[in-house]
Amino acid sequence: MKIFDYLKIAFFYTFSHLGIPFKLRVTEEMQKLYSKREPIKPYAFIRLHNEIKTVDIALKSVLPALKGGVIGFHSCSDGTKEYILEFCKKYPQFIPVEYPYDVIPSGDKRYMNNDFDINSRLDSYYNFIWDKLPKDEWIIKIDGDHIWNIEALESLCRLPIRKTDCIILSRINLHCDNGKCYIHRKYPIMEGGDSWILYNHNVRFLFNRGWNDGHFFAYERLPLPRKERKKILGICSNWHFPVVKNRRDDFKKDDWVLLKDFDIKEYIKRNKMDGRIQDEMLDEKNILNAFNSFNLSGKKMLP
């Protein structure tokens, strides 16, 4: 390992409390420095809505890394509610929480007006579920359309040393169609900060809405002040399959490109992800196997 890697880690843990805007990027090679540490066991923060196609493998793929969690859901009509209730009976370390209001999705034009019910706002829903989680414990945000590489995730769970550390979780945006793998053309790999492992102390979601370059936006956000949350960017630990969801099942090929035709090496280099996107996460056979483990027919099922 290069001495520069040691220096980066030492600098981060020694001086980041000074408020210097520095992110620690932990590569596969650097990850070996943490191999002797016991991984934390976080609680999962999960919100679901009509995700019977994906929920089974999404939850089971991450299960070994978790201490427990809270599974929130609302307005389910496809069997997701029944699945969650049975899952929590089978794994009692998880608590089911039904939100008693319909929730308006992010970006919805209804947010342009001021007459919508505040209970239908995304941050209201998120905070309702979040309040059921234990305080002063490590929490991981889990979505219902991701499949996890459990070894990579458990490796990331070795990274938190201080309660101010925040592990930013990257994801590869993928879809499979007719036995071929596609990667999102505009957002192939995301590391935006809306998926993380963090310590649950003084955490609340807020709501953002407005206009940017003529486009309306509305979404929940979790403020992560630099002085209170030190961001660590590690290796990739999950695949994201957004098109499989019932509400997004319109596969627009113009938004996607065949994985084999995408210059992933150039993208990784340009976006400072060198050494953090493992070859196994880009292997088409692995991706297809993961995709085919979904309940693609959408039939009702139990865990």
Rank of each mutant, 00 (worst) to 15 (best):
Y13T: 03
I52D: 10
C166V: 12
E51T: 05
N271W: 04
R47W: 07
I52S: 13
R247S: 15
V55L: 13
G193Y: 09
D131S: 15
I287E: 01
K23E: 13
G107R: 12
I150N: 15
L133M: 14
N246G: 13
Y101D: 01
R25F: 15
C176E: 05
I197P: 00
D274A: 13
V55I: 15
Y6K: 08
Q93P: 00
I268G: 02
G69P: 05
R37T: 06
G210V: 05
L259K: 10
V26S: 11
C88V: 10
Y34E: 02
W256I: 07
I71L: 08
G179D: 09
D131R: 15
G298M: 03
R209Y: 04
I142P: 01
R25T: 03
K81S: 14
R276C: 03
K230T: 02
E29V: 11
R47N: 13
L224E: 11
K253A: 10
Y13M: 02
I118Q: 14
Q93C: 15
E284G: 03
L288Y: 04
N246A: 15
T164N: 12
V62F: 12
C176M: 06
Y187G: 00
G193F: 05
R209L: 00
V257D: 08
K245N: 15
S293V: 00
D213M: 06
I142S: 02
F251T: 08
D131L: 12
K180G: 00
K32W: 01
I9F: 04
S120P: 01
Y13C: 04
P303K: 02
R270Y: 00
V97Q: 09
V55Y: 07
K245W: 07
D250Y: 14
L122S: 12
C176G: 03
I232N: 08
E266Y: 00
D5M: 10
A152S: 15
L48G: 03
H184P: 00
G107H: 11
Y91K: 03
T54D: 06
N50L: 09
F251N: 06
C166M: 14
K36I: 10
M281D: 05
C236R: 00
L282V: 05
Y6I: 10
K269W: 06
K180C: 03
F262Y: 15
H17Y: 14
E51N: 06
I277C: 02
D145Y: 02
V257L: 09
T27E: 04
T80L: 08
K60Y: 09
W130Q: 08
Y111I: 11
D274K: 12
W256V: 07
W256N: 04
V203Y: 00
C236G: 12
R158C: 12
I161Y: 13
Y111H: 11
I150F: 11
I168T: 07
I84D: 00
K41I: 01
L198I: 10
T14N: 01
L233C: 12
F216L: 03
E29C: 00
N208D: 13
G192R: 12
S61T: 13
D213F: 03
E220Y: 02
F94T: 07
P100Q: 08
N202W: 02
F294D: 04
T164H: 05
L258H: 09
I20H: 01
I183F: 04
D261N: 15
G275V: 13
C157H: 05
I118G: 00
N289H: 02
D131M: 13
